[in-house]
Design a protein around this nucleic acid. Structure first.
Lengths: 218, 218
DNA sequence: ACCTGAACACCGTTCAAGT
DNA sequence: ACCTGAACACCGTTCAAGT
């Protein structure tokens, strides 16, 4: 490595580069060695700024949490607030798909993570939910939002157009006699496509409607 | 490798050993090299039975799907059937935590996967849901079940006792002035613990209740 | 104080060779 | 037909050394 006048490394630049790498190629393509290369630096130079790869990923999760809009405890009704929160979480996970499945994995959450959960619990408590019921509402919504993001991440198509192509390709290989209901659904989806946005909304509406029961018990 | 009278390798034995390894140490601890060692065989010997590591994991997913109980289309009402299915999926994912997040990731699902989705769609269609509504119900339930499994997998405690310990440890490090609602919830959970089973049931009830709206539209 | 270089113990997978 | 051995291009992380 020749002596050049590089901007010195710092934690934020390392994190930003790591997030960019993972956004492009997924978490498994983010290696300490590639990340070092981004800065024209030897891999070991990174270890001054992050303890190890796991600590790097943990810090990246906080970057994602920081992008999520905080629910407003004193504003509109809880359903509107929770709906906005769900959309904000989903949007962040679509920008950073590598983070899907890792959002709740840290034993020591960073400040953005704490701020987020504190604000969300605050919103529900101020809306009149008992503590246990607020936990139930948050747990159910998080499960739904994270699970939906998981399916969108792992399913092999993204747009309605792609869905038609994949479904058609898969459908052609299905034994129609053995799996009549699969044929039915692939035929329909191949014809009219599939919108993740609509699907997300419908399930979210159903869940929020179902959770109203908890509200009425207070 | 000395010449011994080994049972010859075959696909099923390879898969079973791979699942056992992943059950114990997680997916990242399942390497082709370690798997080969289980059989006292050189890594390359495995490549006669699986194309590569990705194909191995894909086949393992089918092993998990095969363990899930098929919903009965002609039996009880759809809510009961979907509730049983949700429990069966969750149970399989608790036995095989490495599979959480991978269940819907294959472009070419194997027979157990197809049987499962065909039976589930069949159950909903026979219950009177329109095709699109059956898709909505299945998508919402899968999101919830997979998302819940994800949180249980990644959250750093399992039993109610462990939850108390972790929550107490984490709680001690929280700034009470900055995060009052977090303090409130950690205090409560440290006192009375947290049961994943109860939590799962409450959210599932709410979602099923909310999905009834779709049923009434038919 | 900060960065480097060599080394260690791992990976998945290739290719050509052995029996 | 089935298994092997050596090799290649990667990993994360250590340690001791350089400036």
């Amino acid at each position: 490595m020749t002596k050049t006048n590089r901007i010195p490394l710092n934690r934020d630049r390392v994190l930003a580069a790591a997030v960019a790498l993972a956004d492009n190629g997924g978490l498994e393509s983010l290696s300490m060695r590639k990340l070092a290369q981004e800065f024209g630096v030897v891999p070991m130079a990174l270890y001054k700024h992050v303890a190890n790869r796991q600590a790097l990923v943990d810090a990246m999760i906080d970057v994602v949490f920081a992008e999520i809009e905080l629910p407003d405890a004193t504003g509109s009704d809880w359903k509107t607030a929770m709906r906005r929160r769900a959309h904000s979480v989903r949007a962040a996970l679509l920008r950073h798909r590598w983070a899907v499945g890792l959002m709740e994995s840290r034993e020591n959450p960073g400040p953005p993570n704490r701020r987020h959960h504190n604000a969300t619990m605050g919103c529900l408590r101020e809306a009149g939910f008992s503590l246990r019921d607020a936990v139930h509402v948050l747990s159910a919504l998080d499960s739904y939002v994270y699970g939906f993001a998981l399916q969108q991440k792992t399913l092999p198509f993204d747009t309605a157009q792609e869905s038609r192509e994949v479904v058609e390709r898969v459908g052609r290989r299905i034994d129609a006699d053995a799996y009549p209901y699969l044929i039915e659904v692939t035929t329909e989806l191949a014809k009219s496509g599939y919108s993740y946005d609509e699907e997300f909304e419908i399930g979210l509406d159903a869940l929020l409607a179902g959770l109203t029961t908890l509200e009425l018990q207070n």
